[in-house]
């Protein structure tokens, strides 16, 4: 039995097992019927057969399934290590953003703001999208509107966007 077929079997067994545990068949189940853990477990099973030649150990902040998938995707690249580094960077940024949105901690917010100029410079994110993220983050970090506006201008300059905020007299 090939690795892929074995992986499929494992995946199906895990998937049906997860559904049986919740009392529904796989084909009939909806997302509501499963926990995130069950879904991740099924997803892990899906990629049980993936292989990569990456020698470096899995970083602690990357899950086993994430590591399998990202190293597997990078393996096809001419420069697997550089590709893996880029993918990990994207993964970590997204995780940090999710964590910030969940916790609204200032430290995470500042880290994200610091990371944005490089992401724009590397072409990982367009400037307008980065600026919208800056505004989202600053709306949490900075309660005082004048200070927030001033900070927004500073942060925008870091990603190459210049603008003025003027008070409009009504």
């Amino acid at each position: 039995m090939s690795d892929n077929r074995l992986a499929t079997l494992v995946f199906v067994l895990l998937l049906t097992g997860a559904c049986a545990a919740s009392g529904v068949k796989a084909e009939e189940s909806g997302a509501d019927a499963r926990t995130d853990a069950q879904i991740q477990s099924s997803f892990m099973a899906l990629f049980a057969g993936s292989q990569s030649d990456v020698a470096q150990p899995r970083p602690a902040d990357v899950s086993d399934v994430e590591w399998r998938v990202l190293t597997g995707v990078s393996a096809d690249d001419a420069d697997p290590e550089a590709r893996l580094a880029l993918l990990l960077d994207n993964l970590r940024f997204r995780k940090a953003l999710e964590a910030f949105r969940a916790t609204e901690t200032a430290e995470l917010g500042e880290q994200l703001l610091d990371a944005l100029p490089q992401r724009v410079e590397q072409g990982a994110m367009p400037a307008d999208r980065a600026q919208r993220l800056q505004m989202q983050i600053l709306s949490v970090l900075e309660a005082d509107p004048p200070l927030r506006r001033q900070r927004a201008q500073e942060e925008a300059r870091r990603i190459g966007v210049g603008f003025d905020i003027r008070k409009v007299n009504s």
């Binding site: 499963r34 853990a37 991740q40 997803f43 399934v65 994207n90 999208r129």
Partner: peptide, 24 residues
């Protein structure tokens, strides 16, 4: 075009974002 981040994927959004999002 740019594909924005992916959300709401039962803990897999970050992985899907890494795989599918971004410019180009």
């Amino acid at each position: 075009t740019y594909f924005p981040d992916i959300e709401g994927c039962a803990g897999l959004a970050s992985l899907f974002t890494a795989l599918m999002s971004g410019p180009g």
